[in-house]
Computed example of a mutant assay.
Amino acid sequence: QKTKELLNNDGKLFTLFGGEHSVSIGSIRAVGEKFENLTVLQLDAHTDLRPEFHGSTSNHACAVFEANQKHNLVQVGIRSMDVEETQYLPEGRVFFAHEIANNENWVNDVLEKVSGNVYITIDLDAFDPSLCPSTGTPEPGGLQWYPTLELLRKVFEKCNVVAFDIVELMDSPMAKPSAFLAAKLYYKMLAYYHIYNNN
């Protein structure tokens, strides 16, 4: 409901800093009700495609299940999933981290799948834990900083980004580098929006 209220403020970009990834469920739902032809671009180590987890459909493991049913979901950086989630994978729109590592053209391959209005949801565990260790479920072998910025810049240039979120930053004794990465990422995305704003 709060997202709906904020989306009524025309001319403003909706952004969200979250704790766990479940906060994205309601925001994506609200954005999808306002904007047609929505692509949800998910940068994440995990697919988050379970219909329910521990009896809840509002769990971080279910973060994009609904988005996958209703919108064009594109997943980037995936390297961990449960076998039950394989049946829900968006065909041809999942870019696994081990494939990205061996594909110099992966950014353009992703861009071919992203179009129209775009909601970007970034779980910070998408990044390699050497860059961002302070997240709830870090996984080795993640995305690198500069190629990820290249992807995001090109998405803002090509499409109409209508909202984005950054989630799963966790407080820890090693939190400072991760917090700076999250803040810098936010600033970069705002800059791309103002440079390439298609409105």
Rank of each mutant, 00 (worst) to 15 (best):
K2M: 04
K4L: 10
K4C: 07
E5A: 12
L7P: 06
N8R: 15
N9R: 15
K12Q: 11
L13V: 13
F14I: 11
L16K: 04
F17M: 11
S22C: 13
S24H: 03
I25E: 02
G26Q: 01
G26E: 01
G26M: 02
S27K: 06
R29P: 00
G32H: 10
G32Q: 10
E33R: 15
E33C: 07
E36P: 09
E36N: 15
N37S: 13
N37I: 07
N37T: 04
T39E: 06
Q42S: 09
T47L: 06
E52Q: 12
F53A: 08
H54K: 13
H54Q: 13
S56N: 05
S56H: 02
T57C: 05
S58T: 09
S58R: 08
N59T: 04
V64E: 03
F65D: 05
E66C: 11
A67Q: 11
A67E: 07
Q69G: 09
L73Y: 02
V76L: 05
I78N: 06
R79P: 09
E85V: 07
E85L: 05
E85W: 10
G92K: 07
V94A: 10
V94Y: 05
A97F: 09
A97L: 13
H98T: 15
E99V: 03
A101R: 11
N102W: 00
N102I: 03
N108Q: 14
D109R: 09
L111Y: 09
L111R: 05
E112Q: 15
V114F: 11
V118A: 14
I120S: 14
D123W: 10
D123P: 11
F127G: 07
D128M: 12
P129Q: 08
L131F: 05
L131W: 01
L131Y: 03
T135D: 02
G136Q: 02
T137K: 06
P138L: 02
E139I: 08
E139R: 07
G141L: 03
L143G: 07
W145K: 14
Y146P: 01
P147M: 13
P147N: 13
T148L: 13
L149I: 15
L149E: 14
L149K: 15
V155F: 12
F156R: 07
E157S: 14
C159F: 10
A163V: 08
F164E: 10
I166E: 07
V167W: 00
V167A: 11
L169F: 11
M170G: 01
S172F: 03
P173S: 05
P173A: 04
P177A: 00
F180H: 06
L181D: 00
A182Y: 00
A183I: 01
A183Q: 03
K184F: 02
Y186Q: 02
Y187D: 07
Y187N: 09
L190G: 04
Y192Q: 09
N197F: 04
